[in-house]
């Protein structure tokens, strides 16, 4: 979903235009009157990030998770104990749907 940038990435400001774009990506809306304050807070936080510029990271592999475990796989088979444990769970998940028709999740029209 988020593409890696090629080219020259640089530390930057979030301006009104970029904030509008980020809000669209985030499926959020913030009232116009609250946006100057939000921009100010975000700027202060980005300024704080500037200090990372001075860290020399050559040779450091990106740490992408909290663990050194590599892909953990599970046998592709039905586990009777697990099935027992999960019994009734589907019903409770469906029950929690905000809107439903029978056992189907009801979604507003896309267009």
């Amino acid at each position: 979903m988020h593409s890696r940038s090629v080219g020259t990435a640089h530390m930057s400001r979030i301006d009104k235009q970029l904030l509008k774009h980020l809000l669209e990506l985030s499926r959020l809306d913030v009232p116009q009157k609250d946006r100057p304050r939000l921009l100010k807070d975000l700027s202060a936080i980005l300024d704080y990030f500037e200090q990372l510029k001075e860290v020399r990271v050559e040779g450091a592999e990106p740490m992408s998770g909290g663990t050194l475990l590599t892909t953990v796989m599970r046998q592709d088979e039905i586990d009777i104990e697990l099935k027992k444990k999960e019994s009734g769970e589907t019903g409770r998940v469906i029950e929690a749907f905000p809107e439903k028709k029978g056992t189907f999740l009801k979604v507003p029209p896309v267009f």
């Binding site: 940038s5 990435a9 990106p62 740490m63």
Partner: peptide, 15 residues
């Protein structure tokens, strides 16, 4: 997001 990923997220992962 594209254009900022390397400067922020990728850098932070290395830090």
């Amino acid at each position: 997001s594209s254009g900022y990923y390397d400067a922020y997220y990728a850098k932070a992962q290395r830090v």
